[in-house]
Design a binder for these strands. Sequence first.
DNA 1: GCTCACATGTAATAAGTTACATGATTTC
DNA 2: GAAATCATGTAACTTATTACATGTGAGC
Lengths: 182, 182
Amino acid sequence: MSTRKFCLAVLFCHDATGYEIRRIAGEGRFAFITEAGYGSIYPCLSKLESEGLVTVSEEFAPSKPPKKIYSITNIGKEAFVNELMELPAHDTFRSPFLLVSLFAQYLDADFIARAIDAREAYLRDKLSELRAQATECCNPASQWTMEYGITTLTASLEYLQKHRSRLEEIAREASSQPQAAE
Amino acid sequence: MSTRKFCLAVLFCHDATGYEIRRIAGEGRFAFITEAGYGSIYPCLSKLESEGLVTVSEEFAPSKPPKKIYSITNIGKEAFVNELMELPAHDTFRSPFLLVSLFAQYLDADFIARAIDAREAYLRDKLSELRAQATECCNPASQWTMEYGITTLTASLEYLQKHRSRLEEIAREASSQPQAAE
DNA sequence: GCTCACATGTAATAAGTTACATGATTTC
DNA sequence: GAAATCATGTAACTTATTACATGTGAGC
């Protein structure tokens, strides 16, 4: 149901094609909603249309692929707001990296260093993207939400930078001695 | 594949039944791995057994339901470590609450206040549970990982406490005036 | 000439969630 | 006596992911 809400959320703000909705997924103010691909978005838009929550208008530009521009209807807006008005489920936060860190002592030190590097780079990218979008944006609720994201990502990046050496050491120490299961 | 890794991770540390694995899901050092239910765990354990990564021993205590205690095999340990030794995928963080905050201006102020209250309570609970587990635990990698979680949850809770009034005001202001779409 | 961005979609597969089905023991 | 905890599992359903399939135009 999360792709559904995401599509409605985007269309609530402005008309868009499936392609555009896909591009927005996981970025800016939608960073923490979903990262749906085409395979979820296109079928979802068709379903929303059949339910009357959105309408489509096709645009045939000469010598360009035809576009389907989706708009949310009043019924769609109402449905969306109603769906939001239930106490939101709690966050799902899943981190394959934290599974790696949990078993750092059984993995090699080089690998751990590379995994940390990759994570640091990723967090930095996400952060700069979010910061850029946040300064551009003038809607107060969007700004509040993006600042929330910036705050938590910053905390995450700072922890990683401050404490990465400790994790790297755990991996180094373990690989230099015979290992025993915990 | 995440339930699979989670089961192997738990069994890497100690033997357990499906029921126990379920209880550990989403708690302590496994807080950020998965929150799988019985419906994922039991079939997963059967599959791991058929692959030879774990073994089962049944325990028939008189006047108690029979238990199936799973143990990881050497092949299982090896497979697990090998699966971890690929650069971890990036985190997935999905927050239904942040979708609500994004549209705060269209929702009623009371509802926003309740949603924030619920989130604050949830974060506080998660944090105290994690802190309790972190002090009990003496494995350095587990501790590093839990402190990571504590750091980000703390940042999240602090943001919410400091800035909740701004979000509440957005909802209040909007409901007192005629609304226009963004 | 090649690759990237634009643009839409389907089909097969994998995975997870929910509800169902059962039953003993312990705690209030 | 009721509710919660321990304990296992299946079946149906929903959802998301991946790969496939196709085609144009712009920039290098």
